[in-house]
Design a binder for these strands. Structure first.
Lengths: 213, 213
DNA sequence: TCCTGTGAAACGGTTCACAGCC
DNA sequence: GGCTGTGAACCGTTTCACAGGA
């Protein structure tokens, strides 16, 4: 693989969509697909599809399109889906529980190898094959189970401290559900899921549209 | 309010962060704040704060900064948080259940007024004051309860059809948790929460960083 | 002919720098 | 002097348009 320059975040998100579309095409036993069709299924434009893919190489055949199976394979490679990832879930509340059972994680290669919580009532409970452990063991769990990704599904007050500890223990990727901006070293990647913020974006949009009349 | 031009989505998201920061400042009884301080707490730059706010008017005093209480009030106004929103939750699975109990929704003015599901085992169950209703009643529920926002927490196969029906029933905002791109008329606003995609962005980032050595 | 891959142009958002007001 | 508000410069992403290979 050539030394990749900086790839826009937006490109990565679209690549995920393309892969999803390709998997549907695979199940329909389509063998080739054009940038045009991929664009429609991914919710973007043909030029955008080609530009996105060009960051990573030339996977298509001129005049013909892309091989569905081959492109899907390359995209899985790009997104790092060729291996299984070890996820440590911190927070066994409602959100944590929903994520633990979320079927698409396992399907995509993300295995939740441990669950931690601070609530003595929850500690020791078994969720399937996983026993809930005290949050004090975070460092131990990360290092002994070789966790790649930490999911924080905890109250906002607790998030920064837990993030610091996870980073210290060697984690380089955090998916944060707590509605706070985390401060982490530059080499650590954080993505945010802020549920209230998404609703606020909607109520803003409705309010705006309404006031235009 | 002047007829607002197009406001970048990113600005709205930052405004949400500013409001969160202002509320913390309010609780600490701070009275004024500079764009510089707001930027630090919101995870951006001072110039960006000023630019973001300038889309909506001039709320600060030169040489002095912004009044915390006044700015918070204006931002609530902008985000449409001055009223309560009526949310219809479709899907009473793990995710739906977590969202229903999510405390920050109510706190911000989003009330879940109805829950629907297609599973006969769930229909009729009571979640607090709300009884789970069959998904067939979607249109009825939206019109009788005057739903403003629909949250889709359903399997991907079901999402498009439910979105169509919700739009038909008059909903103008959808928060979609199903991992599919929805096709809706331009005047309907959709925001996506795609959990797998967030993890994929992380595994891509880790893979990239690793391969650079 | 068809469709990809890619420089070049266009666009939009961010950053800069400073005028203007407290 | 201090800090906001904003046009202008900058920069990264998207779109265009076409060269080039199946």
């Amino acid at each position: 693989m050539p030394v990749t320059r900086h790839i826009p975040e937006s490109t990565i998100r679209r690549i995920s969509h393309y892969l999803r579309a390709l998997e549907i095409l695979e199940s329909q036993e389509a063998t080739t697909v054009s940038s045009e069709e991929l664009a429609q299924r991914g919710g973007t434009t043909a030029a955008q599809v080609r530009k996105d893919l060009s960051h990573f190489g030339s996977f298509g055949k001129r005049g013909l399109g892309y091989s569905v199976a081959e492109l899907a394979d390359r995209l899985r490679d790009i997104l790092g889906l060729k291996c299984r990832w070890r996820v440590v879930l911190v927070g066994a509340g409602r959100i944590g529980s929903a994520l633990f059972e979320y079927p698409y994680f396992v399907q995509r290669g993300y295995d939740c190898v441990a669950v931690l919580d601070s609530d003595p009532e929850k500690i020791g409970m078994s969720w399937g094959p996983v026993r809930i452990r005290p949050v004090e063991e975070l460092e131990l769990v990360i290092s002994s189970l070789k966790g790649d990704i930490v999911i924080l599904a905890v109250p906002p007050e607790a998030a920064q401290d837990l993030a610091d500890r996870a980073v210290e223990a060697g984690v380089r990727a955090i998916l944060n559900f707590a509605p706070v901006q985390l401060r982490v070293p530059a080499e650590v990647h954080v993505t945010y899921v802020n549920l209230v913020l998404e609703l606020e974006a909607l109520s803003f949009a409705i309010t705006q549209a309404g006031s235009r009349t």
